[in-house]
């Protein structure tokens, strides 16, 4: 008998989370599509042309939300990892595994759009700026996590090893960020500074925030869809999968 009024672990079981995730996916997918359209409309049509950077700056509406998401998703993965190690909940490891490819995708997208933006603005596809370098390293951390998980056959072991790696990584991310920043200031003057950019117009900020929300909704929808596949794969022989398959 549970003494608590709320059963916190009700949805920690794949059997009860599977249908819930299925019901949630359409809402988040629709939100992602609508917010994405609204964000792009504001970003491409409404926001004023930048005085210094012209039209080229508009890639910011994809670049900045993608960078935010790539960092945030890693933190969420670390959160699920800690939860999974502490409570031994099966679903936590599955959620971590389901989030990793999306995080890697956003890290790559952020690097790619950054290069596309850098070429017209700084005249180079790549500069050894602290943010670029640490974003690249974050991308490597995602790849390492995915590689480790996919090379261990036993899913329980893959989850735990991945969880430990994600936690080690999350301790390291700030250390790496600051070390790269100091390395950068030692090697070159602050020729490229994004922190001193002129303050943004309100419509630009609104467009960026709406795009960020769209990416959030997209991440949730995709992660839920992926976690449903992982649940089916791993629990193929269990009762609830058979019940769902016959429905």
């Amino acid at each position: 008998m549970s003494h608590s009024l709320v059963n916190w672990f009700k949805y920690a079981s794949p059997a009860s989370f599977y249908p819930l995730a299925g019901r949630m996916i359409p809402y988040f997918a629709a939100a992602a599509a609508l917010l994405g359209l609204a964000g792009l409309w504001i970003g491409l049509l409404v926001a004023p042309t930048d005085a210094q950077q012209g039209e080229g700056y508009r890639i910011i509406f994809v670049h900045v939300p993608a960078s935010w998401m790539s960092m945030f998703v890693y933190c969420v993965m670390a959160f699920w990892s800690a939860l999974g190690l502490a409570f031994k909940t099966r679903l936590s490891g599955m959620m971590t595994a389901a989030l990793a490819p999306t995080g890697a995708l956003f890290a790559f997208l952020s690097l790619w759009t950054g290069a596309l933006w850098g070429k017209p603005m700084w005249g180079a596809w790549w500069v050894w700026d602290a943010r670029l370098t640490s974003q690249l390293i974050l991308f490597f951390l995602y790849l390492g996590f995915i590689a480790l998980q996919s090379s261990i056959d036993d899913p329980r072991r893959a989850d735990k090893a991945g969880a430990l790696l994600a936690l080690v990584g999350v301790i390291n991310v700030p250390i790496i960020y600051f070390s790269v920043q100091w390395w950068n200031t030692l090697h070159q003057g602050a020729s490229v500074s994004m922190t001193k950019a002129p303050s943004m117009a309100h419509t630009m900020l609104a467009g960026m925030l709406i795009m960020a929300l769209a990416f959030w909704a997209y991440t949730i929808a995709v992660a839920l869809a992926r976690v449903r596949c992982i649940m089916l794969e791993r629990e193929l022989s269990s009762e609830w999968v058979k019940r769902n398959a016959t429905e």
């Binding site: 951390l141 390492g144 480790l148 056959d153 390291n172 250390i175 790496i176 070390s179």
Partner: peptide
Amino acid sequence: ALTLGVRGGGALLSLLILPLYIP
């Protein structure tokens, strides 16, 4: 320890560890 007994352990080890050596 993480890659102990894992397929392709050596290459995987470098992929996991080298980014953490950066600081």
